[in-house]
């Protein structure tokens, strides 16, 4: 599995007053097994970019290659691509529609034209992977809690057995426990099931603890593409774009400015804790 995004542009409503350049010459590639975060402020083109990855939107310039094949080329099996690149939209629980949880999760694999037994097996595995209990399989999805609904919606995409899973703001509107569950789920899918995961998020703290590489979008352009630690070393640039570094990184760099001999390139709470304790000699 590999995705190459090559000089992609996307212009909305060309030739009218509503014209807007949402993507401007975006180039990057994704290799098998990567764990990537995509950040940028609202309206920076993140969501537009991810809807290009499974062919829901077509670039107005440039090309996207999945396993080396241009997905805009004639006769490309776009439906199969949508099975391989699973896209979970923001507030995915808003797309639930079936009478019970199990039937809703079956929707994706059914659309892939699989056999009945295979469909049910995949739905079962997906629901287990996201931690939904057996007794909840046949209740209405609208009777579940917010976090459970979201996990069911994610299962609906997982049941298609994607090679790449894109999660657009998976934690939006959830409580801290719900956020942790979703991020732990993303970790599990990446490490145990070997799925390439891309998380779109505003929260640097969430990303710092999880992803290995970060892409930063600003005004339709890809402005940074580097390992997580490297990106968070650019505090001033990020803040100029209306973004931030993880809170602990900000605290450490403020401590350093105040004269304490701490390292300021640490990004997780655990690291920061031992560093501060080290400086105070405990």
């Amino acid at each position: 599995m590999s995705i190459i995004v090559n000089h992609v542009d996307h212009i909305y409503n060309p030739g009218t007053v509503f014209e807007k350049k949402a993507l401007n010459d975006v180039t990057f590639s994704v290799e098998n097994g990567e764990y990537i975060g995509l950040v940028g402020r609202t309206g920076s083109g993140k969501s537009t970019l991810v809807t290009h990855l499974n062919g829901l939107m077509k670039p107005t310039g440039g090309g996207i290659y999945y396993d080396g094949v241009d997905i805009s080329s004639d006769g490309y099996d776009i439906k199969a691509l949508r099975g391989k690149v699973g896209l979970v939209f923001q507030y995915p629980e808003h797309q639930l529609f079936e009478e019970d949880v199990f039937a809703d999760v079956c929707f994706g694999p059914k659309n892939l034209g699989l056999k009945e037994t295979e469909i049910e097996l995949r739905a079962y595995e997906a629901l287990k992977a996201v931690g939904i209990k057996d007794e909840q399989f046949y209740v209405s999805p609208f009777d579940l809690s917010g976090g459970e609904k979201r996990r069911v919606a994610i299962a609906g995409v997982l049941a298609m057995k994607p090679e790449v899973l894109v999660l657009d703001e998976p934690c939006a509107g959830l409580d801290p426990a719900g956020r942790e569950e979703i991020l732990a789920l993303a970790d599990h899918l990446h490490s145990s099931l070997n799925i390439t995961v891309i998380i779109v998020s505003h929260s640097m703290d969430d990303l710092a603890e999880h992803v290995e590489r970060i892409l930063v979008m600003n005004d339709g352009m890809l402005v940074m593409d580097a390992p997580t630690r490297v990106v968070f070393g650019h505090r001033a640039e990020l803040e100029a774009m209306g973004l931030a570094v993880p809170e602990v990184t900000a605290i450490l760099s403020d401590l350093k400015k105040a004269g304490l001999p701490v390292r300021d390139d640490l990004i997780t709470i655990e690291e920061a804790r031992s560093e501060i304790l080290r400086v105070f000699g405990k």
Partner: peptide
């Protein structure tokens, strides 16, 4: 439009 896209992402035709 959003819902159509979300269901298409699940292979809806």
């Amino acid at each position: 439009d959003r819902i159509i896209k979300a269901q298409q992402a699940r292979g809806a035709d």
